[in-house]
Design a binder for these strands. Structure first.
Lengths: 108, 108
DNA sequence: TAGCAATGCTACATTATCTGTAGCAAGCCA
DNA sequence: TGGCTTGCTACAGATAATGTAGCATTGCTA
């Protein structure tokens, strides 16, 4: 029973999982981490920090712990962090986002 | 030229729109606001605060300003906040998220 | 096998961000 | 006029993130 603990997910008093998920994803660097690990990418904690604009290690570790407890990310010693099958499923929800972002940029 | 201003979107130094978008969406309450306004819902600023677990008005206004500058949200006087066509397009990227969240909750 | 570099992770002081409460001006409607 | 709601702001206190330093462990490699 790794995730959905009250310590990990804020704003889940409603009991609706979508709220817990939106809260988890709405923390700084969380979306970015999932994005950087998309499509079976494997990154060490330091490579991940570099990819994430040199975010501070403190918050990076905190976010990685949360994502691991939520079951979205796993660590293989010597091979770095990667998405779990569940994490990949989540990540697929954001696949279209890149194309949308391009359209958005042009729209402005 | 309402959005993608440096004041509004952090971490966009890469010039890649997806980074700017992930940064914008990764701020507290932003995803939640877009979620609450899905499917042509129209909510006054106060109804929106209530829907968002009574988030503080300070940060709510800040997020709404950012979303308006980004072109995702608009305010109609006397009728509340709603998604723009662009905002609806963005919101559609998260439609499947609710079902995923249910599966996630069961998985734990 | 001693030295070296990389790994995951933590400490801690500074800075940025968010919360909670109060309250303002403007519009509406009786 | 008076009460009600709207969008929005001020501000002090609390929480979260940053930036730098560094630790213990592991896998080379010389």
């Amino acid at each position: 029973m790794p995730a959905m603990k009250k310590d990990v997910v804020r704003g889940s008093r409603s009991g609706r999982p979508i709220m817990a998920l939106l809260d988890l994803l709405g923390r700084r660097w969380t979306l970015r981490i999932v994005w950087e690990l998309r499509e079976d990418r494997r990154l060490t904690s330091r490579a991940l920090r570099t990819a994430c604009d040199e975010a501070s290690p403190t918050i990076m570790q905190a976010r990685l712990s949360e994502l691991r407890e939520a079951g979205f990310v796993a660590l293989v010693q010597g091979d770095g962090y990667h998405l779990t099958p569940l994490g990949k499923e989540l990540s697929e929800n954001f696949q279209a986002l890149s194309r949308f972002a391009e359209r958005w940029a042009k729209w402005n």
